[in-house]
Write a protein that binds this DNA or RNA. Structure first.
Lengths: 369, 369
DNA sequence: TTGAAAGCGTTACCAA
DNA sequence: TTGGTAACGCTTTCAA
């Protein structure tokens, strides 16, 4: 591999001049420029080595996006896709690349500089990172904070690390979740299941008590659950009739499986509120498989209002996913540029009612209103 | 920012020893290790600078994945997600990170070292790259080839760059596309639309002549079209009754829009074969919107057999998406390790028949068989 | 087990 | 407009 120095030598110019040729910077005469370019081609010079340039410049032109769950999993959720699209758009415009940093849950949380616990995060070549919706007990944020990287945390209100420079982007989904529960209560539902992928890093499945639900490691989940509960109480209904169930994973299959269990329960619910559209879709399909009509026998509410929801007519809580990504990216770029950054940005969320919710089948519960 | 040298000095050791502490490499006494670690913490040392380490090591531990269309667009297609999941899995296992390099189509194709045509690609900090299903007139592959990077091209059989070291991963989808057309012909369909997102970089919409279809810039599209045509001819049917239509984009909406146009045509088709599941889903929804039954009034075949297809019962051509990603990643890692690499790997594809295809409504065409 | 020193390939300052 | 040159922060022989 030819180097800049070799090219410069062969072209009879200094490395400084050669560098200028390849960077468009500085004034170089056309004659010299042509000669350098030609020599480079002859030598098969591939252009400045990015790692070297980055070292020298002190910045690499790449931001990282930390995703829970591993890439395959994360990309399976259209919500993550929309978020990333927002990040990518802003990044593209600023000519900044994107590195995806998946952090599978449950990796041993080793600490100390010698332990190679999260090697990807510890050594990722990025100028800063956006940490997207990871669980609060994840070592990801502390690892990044230890690197003193400019950081934007999305959907994680609490900062366990106490790092003051970490900007936050949140969605006010607690209120929107409350709207969803209110909607169901108003329709006349009196026994409702709240479906989460899981409450802790451990993949469990089945009903969980509220005492446990309140301890969910993901703040997003906690907030949404709190929203449902708020509204339920406000409607004067007993929390015991708002069951929390873990599906074990955030996937259509997990939702489908859970639907079977839920529907065959002794006291079946008449509606389910899910923390993602993917789960909601699974519930819908599971219910239909068992011969139940949606919303006739089971009302289903999703979360995220991903493209999926509109496609299948799912009532869902809409959060501005793309905008969330854009906001996070803009905040990070601002921090990188040394500009002041909003420490905390809150985005709104709203309930979008579609065809998957309706009054419960008669006799099951009180009438609407 | 503290540096390794400063830490070493403060701890009273050489930089070599300090480096060993942070790399787990070499033998360092526990006493010294503890002292270094402690000093690092006191000084707020963030760990070795990745850019510097990469420069020194000569490798960065990251592979790039080049995606056409911009990230948002690419992630909207579940097929791309599945592919990426395969890449990520193999990458993860090898402790190699992933950088996404979106290449929006239609960017001016400038060349030469001074023109800053595709800055992201020209300066991406990667050890090698996987180029996924991009159009053949895209400057992306030449740009990367110019950097002499180890490369794996997925779904692009022709190598315009003549770079011998570019490995290829292909799916035999021509034959599978033929199976799809044969399936439709056998069901009795005599007038079928083939729906592509687009034939050239320019987003056009509407019917295109076969003369133009054969020139599609994407080899994947060309192959699939050729497959449909092969089978159609083999069934003894006239190519004029196999209409090629451009939807303008690879999205549900585009498919939906096209469905409206197709169905209201003078001589409506009784079946459509789409080059993606996303388009097929759009066609299905568009048809239903207009009161048409699927498959009663319109049979729909998708492509990719993405998770989507199974969810909505779409007949689709299954290609091993995840395996494709794994294969590509493995090939690249092998090349990076200096091992010999299969210059060309072909993966199979097969037709999966589900509920979206059936015989045409009576009177519309000949009987099945 | 530890240290000295030689770069890795650039960029950017300042002077000519 | 061009050239000299000093870093950028680290890893890695090789010798002690």
């Amino acid at each position: 591999m030819a180097t800049l120095r070799e090219v410069a030598a062969a072209a009879g110019v200094s490395t400084a001049t050669a560098s200028n040729v390849f960077n468009g910077t500085g004034r170089v005469s056309d004659a010299v420029r042509a000669r350098v370019v030609e020599t480079a081609a002859a030598l098969g010079y591939a252009g400045p080595n990015p790692a070297a340039a980055s070292l020298r410049r002190g910045r690499v032109g790449i931001i990282g996006v930390v995703l829970a769950e591993g890439l395959g999993y994360a990309l399976g959720d259209p919500a993550a896709g929309a978020f990333l699209a927002g990040v990518a758009e802003v990044g593209d415009a600023a000519d900044v690349g994107l590195t995806l940093l998946p952090v599978p849950p449950g990796r041993p949380d080793r600490t100390g500089p010698t332990a190679r616990g999260l090697p990807t995060l510890e050594r990722a070549i990025v100028d800063g990172a956006i940490v997207y919706s990871i669980e609060e007990d994840s070592p990801a944020l502390p690892t990044l904070v230890a690197r003193r990287l400019p950081l934007v945390a999305v959907d994680s209100p609490r900062d366990a690390t106490e790092a003051p420079w970490v900007a936050r982007v949140l969605v006010r989904d607690r209120d929107a979740a409350a709207d969803a529960a209110t909607h169901l209560a108003a329709l006349g539902h009196r026994r409702v299941a709240v479906v989460v992928d899981r409450l802790t890093s451990a993949a469990r499945t089945g009903r969980a008590p509220w005492s446990q639900a309140r301890q969910a490691t993901s703040s997003v989940i906690r907030e949404r659950l709190a929203g449902y509960a708020d509204a339920w109480r406000r409607a004067g209904l007993p929390l015991s009739a708002l069951e929390v169930h873990e599906a074990g994973a955030n996937s259509v299959e997990a939702g489908q499986q859970l639907a079977r269990d839920l529907v065959t329960a002794r006291a079946p619910v008449t509606a389910v509120a899910c923390v993602s559209d993917v789960l909601a879709l699974g519930m819908t399909q599971g219910a239909r498989e068992l011969g139940l009509g949606v919303p006739r026998d089971l009302s289903v509410v999703g979360f995220d209002d991903s493209p999926l929801a509109a496609q299948v007519g799912l009532t869902s809580v809409a959060q501005p996913l793309r905008e969330k990504g854009e906001t996070a990216a803009r905040a990070l770029l601002a921090a990188l540029a040394g500009q002041p950054v909003e420490a905390r940005t809150e985005l709104p969320a709203t309930l979008v009612v579609r065809g998957s919710t309706g009054p419960p089948a008669q006799g099951e519960a009180a009438r609407p209103r």
